[in-house]
Amino acid sequence: MNISRKEFLRKIQELEFAVIELNLFLDTHPSHQQALADYNRLTQELMNAKAMYERQYGPLTNFGYAPSQYPWQWALTPWPWEDDYDCKEDMPCGYMKKS
C-alpha cells in the first residue's frame, strides 16, 4: 500500500460515509434491491480496507473487533482530536512516541 496514513484514513471515511448513507436509506426502504446490493458491495470493500489499515496503523475499534500488536495499541495510538492523529504525510503514526 503506497499511500500515506492520512490518505488511507480518508478513503475509509469516504467508504464508510457511503455505507452510512445506504444504511439510513435502507432503514426506510428495506426492500430496495439496488441499495442493498450497493450496501453489501461497499461493506465488503470497507471491511477489507479497515483490516488492511489496522494491520499497518493499529486498531480503529476495540471490544473484540480488531486484534492488537504488543503493547496494547488501542490505548497507545493517537486519538482523533490530537495533533499526532493527523500526522505528517509519510510518518507511520500508529505508534505512540517514546516519552
Binding site: 484514513l9 480518508r10 475509509i12 471515511q13 464508510e16 460515509f17 452510512i20 486498531p59 480503529l60 475499534t61 476495540n62 471490544f63 473487533y65 488501542w74 495510538t77 486519538w79 482523533p80 493527523d86
Partner: peptide, 12 residues
C-alpha cells in the same frame, strides 16, 4: 455501542 477511533468526517 462500539467506538471507532476516527471522526466521521475530517476536521482541520
Amino acid at each position: 455501542w462500539i467506538y471507532e477511533k476516527k471522526l466521521e468526517y475530517p476536521v482541520k
